[in-house]
Simulated scan of single mutants.
Amino acid sequence: MSSTWTEQDIPDQAGRVAVVTGANSGLGFETARMLAEHGARVVLAVRDVEKGKQAAARITGDVAVQALDLTSLASIRSAAADLRAAHPRIDLLINNAGVMYTPKQTTADGFELQLGTNHLGHFALTGLLLDRLLPVPGSRVVTVSSTGHRIRAAIHFDDLQWERSYDRAAAYGQAKLANLMFTYELQRRLAPHGTTIATAAHPGVSRTDLARNAPTALRVPLTWLAPLFQPAEMGALPTLRAATDPGVVGGQYYGPGGRREIRGYPRLVTSSPASHDQATQQRLWAVSEELTGVTFPVA
């Protein structure tokens, strides 16, 4: 695999349908833009439809907008129904949307906001759309994680929703670790079907508004350091490589190739030992099914 994989290495995407969550700005916008410019029909799945329409107007290609609020299971079910009606086949589902370091809040269904948005919302959406991907050769589910999955990260089954106490950094770490565990368990379940694969990616440290909810003590230095971060179009490349590179196989994880994976061209990277704990993956899967009420058409 090339050590300088760029936008020019994205294969022709003509005839493919891609759904990208959180695609009205930042990494999601750049991911959607590049897919559309390479011929894909791209659906921007966004909470704010007006912002989604503004983003779509800035993209050259076949682009549609779908309302999706990952903090509401009702919205997720409604969006999935709309997408299923509009698209008999889906080639790419890119679980990109996310929140980071938010103050203690809950979703419409009572889930801790970071876990609910970053993991449970995408878990439910994927389960509701998966039968549109399974018949499609070369289809992929790409879930965006973070180097934050290594920072104070564990799956706290004894207090999954942080009801007894709350630490926004640890809650983010749990959610991003859950993204990877979901990817690895999904790939295990997909493998016997042989058509769809699950992969993961992380953007390194990119200039986006993801850290807008960070505490002031962290937000100020992040603002000072922002000129050193890579632009969003570079941060989107690991996701795009995981989604389109013909050499990618299921269960792989892509990130920037520079020092400490902060920036650089995308390459295959490794995730924490904790993320590969199969027993925890399976337990998290079972809990996620119970919480969302969504089961997958793969055993």
Rank of each mutant, 00 (worst) to 15 (best):
A242V: 07
P215K: 03
V220P: 07
R260F: 09
R263N: 03
P215A: 02
A242H: 05
T239D: 06
A242D: 05
P221Q: 11
Y253C: 04
Q252W: 11
A226R: 15
Q252S: 15
D209Y: 00
P221N: 10
G250C: 13
E233W: 11
Q252H: 12
R241W: 06
M234R: 09
L240A: 01
T216I: 06
R212M: 08
R219N: 02
A242P: 05
I262Y: 05
F229R: 07
V249L: 14
A214E: 02
L222P: 00
R219C: 00
Y253W: 11
P221M: 10
A217L: 11
L240F: 01
A214V: 03
L240E: 00
P246D: 10
A236N: 05
L228E: 10
P238D: 08
G247E: 15
R241A: 06
R212H: 10
L237R: 13
R260P: 00
G258T: 09
V220G: 09
F229Y: 12
Y254F: 15
E261T: 06
E261A: 11
T223H: 13
R259S: 02
E233K: 07
V248I: 15
N213Q: 13
A226W: 08
A214L: 03
P215M: 03
L237P: 06
V220A: 13
A242G: 11
E261Q: 15
E233G: 02
R219W: 07
Q230S: 06
R263S: 13
L240R: 01
T239S: 14
E233R: 12
V249A: 15
P215N: 04
Y253K: 05
G251Q: 14
G251K: 14
D209M: 01
A232M: 01
P238I: 05
P246W: 12
R263E: 06
R219V: 00
M234I: 02
L210H: 01
V220Q: 12
L240S: 00
Q252M: 14
R260S: 09
D209G: 09
A214S: 08
